[in-house]
């Protein structure tokens, strides 16, 4: 038997409308999770550089736990494990958003910590010497400068998290990969469909990269 493989363009094109239905879920889980993750990141990131050990300690524990375990295990734990604890089911979408939030939050905490610590001490000293309170000094002097430095690593984390959502096909969220699997189950056109799926991820991540580039350039222009 002669081996011959032909890429079936028609099959690829036919799969597009069905796959597109997964995109809203992919985007919702990614950006919903990242938005919460960003807030967690600011909160725990700032706690992790606090002078008081009893504030620093829980933050460090959170960061180490969610950075040190696979996100797949985290989402399985939330979706299959947590219902036993809270006595009721969690829908897969919520579980997915929670997993991205908690996971990206841990990485973003480190980004926040690094960003804030990179700002020269002289900046806070100048603020304090002018009579600003510590809180005012932080939010009007240190944070704006730190945030600007955080943009590239934050963009990096966003791209990682978008790709991480593909793992959530295991809990049955109808995101991009899940849609692909369902489609392939009927058509057996795995090569074509996963090719289209990959291109769709690339479209999302590339447009994000582009937006971040523009944002960074605007930030640089004013320093």
């Amino acid at each position: 038997m002669e081996f011959q493989f032909q890429f079936d363009w028609q099959a690829a094109i036919n799969s597009i409308p069905f796959l597109l239905k997964g995109i809203p879920y992919t985007l919702l889980i990614s950006f919903g999770g990242l938005a919460i993750g960003f807030m967690l990141g600011i909160f725990f990131g700032l706690l992790s550089i606090n002078k008081k050990w009893f504030l620093r300690w829980p933050a460090t524990a959170y960061i180490e736990i969610f950075r040190g375990t696979p996100i797949l295990v985290q989402v399985l734990f939330i979706f299959y494990g947590l219902p036993d604890l809270i006595g009721g089911p969690i829908d897969p979408l919520t579980a997915g958003i929670a997993a991205i939030a908690l996971n990206s939050g841990a990485y973003i905490s480190e980004v926040v910590r690094g960003g804030v610590q990179s700002i020269d001490r002289g900046q806070s000293e100048a603020g304090l010497s002018l009579g600003l309170s510590r809180t005012q000094t932080f939010w009007s002097i240190v944070w704006p400068q730190a945030f600007r430095r955080m943009i590239p690593p934050l963009g990096n984390q966003a791209i990682v998290s978008i790709k991480d959502t593909s793992l959530f096909s295991v809990i049955g969220v109808g995101e991009l990969v899940r849609q692909g699997q369902v489609y392939i189950a009927n058509t057996f056109t795995a090569f074509e469909v996963y090719f289209v799926v990959a291109i769709m991820y690339l479209c999302i991540t590339l447009s994000l990269s582009l937006m971040l580039r523009l944002l960074e350039r605007r930030g640089v222009a004013s320093t």
């Binding site: 000293e125 100048a126 010497s129 002018l130 400068q145 600007r148 004013s222 320093t223």
Partner: peptide
């Protein structure tokens, strides 16, 4: 600190 101004060796202006 409201009554005492300070000028630093490294200026410490706010770059943003």
């Amino acid at each position: 600190r409201k009554q005492v101004g300070m000028v630093f060796q490294q200026f410490n202006l706010f770059p943003h």
